[in-house]
Design a protein around this nucleic acid. Structure first.
Lengths: 237, 237
DNA sequence: CGGCGCGCTTGATACAGATCAAAGAAAACT
DNA sequence: AGTTTTCTTTGATCTGTATCAAGCGCGCCG
């Protein structure tokens, strides 16, 4: 199915809720689309500070690094999420495609103008940034105080939640759900504050106790979601 | 010096930049003031989701916890910082006074109305939230990948930066600066993802090598800021 | 088809920081 | 002032995760 530029924004939860048709039209007129293959930066240097975008398909990661190379993935952006910050400081962290990504982007100054002009849009945007902040804080708790196993379980749960079709609010939960982790082992390690070896061992551990099954490299089946939830918060079985 | 309610907002960097006099007047009319002694929650349960505030004096901390008690301090709010989120999800993390705090607070719905009405204010607010997100991300890097010594040095530097008088942009840097850490050892540990014992040992280490000197419990003198900066990012001396 | 490279797993060992234990030092209370 | 309580330091030991070091699987390309 080919998405038209119009449907870009329509498909974006973050943008479309409660906005009048006229506003959406205006937004859509500013939108441009782009596909970014896995591993590539979403924007080139010139763009980085002058665009905002929403993810249509795939998963993007945002990361920050220390001079000596230590890297922390600080956020994942799933379909419908915003990327970029209007009015913000001119230092953008690095945004890359974790999987192949399809996105819909806007010239920043114009988007800012829209933001100022349309009350509803501004509110939607504030909510989005706020949600991101909440996610960052939850991750701080994970990085500061959770064990390796809890971290791994938390990540799987987050992917599960965000990759599930969210439209059908009350769909019957499948006993076994298959998902494709959007990150490589290295990226998982950078997100969880662990090493790739530990990530590998924790995945193994979770699969030996039976809460997940590892299919191929990134593909896993969640066999016991409750067990996973328990393990995401309390170390003790 | 007694601060009038009017001067509340005037003193707040975040609120006063580039706002027209009329807007400030309107904001000031909605403001209420409060003093919170160290250790107390800033707001009671009813309020928590229905107010926003700016810190006038002292330092507030925001924290999230796991069921078993593990606690992560996810943010510090220094004078001029915002607390609370307009339009946000109805789950507010716990905000407490780290030191005695003086704040200026607003009824949330009214503040939201203001936000929608005044373009400039909204922009100021977005910037504030964005800055908070940046800080959270930098802290994620710290929690995920820095050593205990680097963490301790980073915290001291952050306090140093935020507690310095920021009005005098180009003031001559003193060779030795004395600051009062706004957090107890326990709180520092919860912020850095360490234990109190390790915090104590790292402070000792930094003082033995001479970059800081420990005066009383919370009072320290920064004797070698450059050394501290080096230690905040690179482990190796 | 076979070698080559890259991402992943697995095992052995080391170490930073946690945990356990106790003693000082400040506050807080009487 | 003296006692209790709470916070901080210091020391000894333990442990989870990093680090070091092979080995494995699989896609890629000649």
């Amino acid at each position: 199915m080919r998405l038209t530029c119009r449907s870009c924004s329509i498909r974006s939860r973050a943008l479309c809720r409660a906005l009048p048709e006229a506003t959406l039209d205006q937004i859509n007129r500013l939108a441009r689309r782009r596909r970014v293959p896995a591993g590539r930066a979403l924007f080139n240097e010139d763009e980085a500070n002058n665009v905002v975008a929403t993810v249509l398909a795939g998963v993007a990661k945002v990361s920050v690094s220390l001079a000596d190379g230590r890297t922390q993935v600080v956020g994942l952006h799933f379909p419908s999420d915003f990327i970029g910050r209007p009015f913000a400081a001119p230092v953008a962290p690095l945004a890359e495609a974790a999987t192949d990504v399809e996105l819909c982007f806007f010239d920043r100054p114009r988007f800012e103008a829209l933001l100022v002009e349309h009350k509803g849009l501004e509110e939607v945007f504030v909510r989005q940034v706020t949600a991101e902040l909440d996610a960052a804080r939850e991750w701080m708790l994970l990085l500061g105080h959770k064990t390796a196993e809890e971290r791994m379980a938390s990540l799987i749960l987050q992917c599960l939640t965000r990759l599930e079709p969210s439209d059908c609010v009350a769909h019957v939960p499948a006993t076994e759900v298959r998902i494709e982790l959007p990150l490589s082992r290295t990226e998982i390690a950078q997100f969880l504050g662990l090493t790739i070896e530990t990530v590998s061992r924790m995945l193994k551990r979770l699969s030996t106790v039976g809460v997940i099954a590892i299919e191929s490299g990134r593909g896993i089946r969640v066999r016991d979601r409750a067990g996973l939830e328990r393990r995401a918060e309390a170390g003790k079985v």
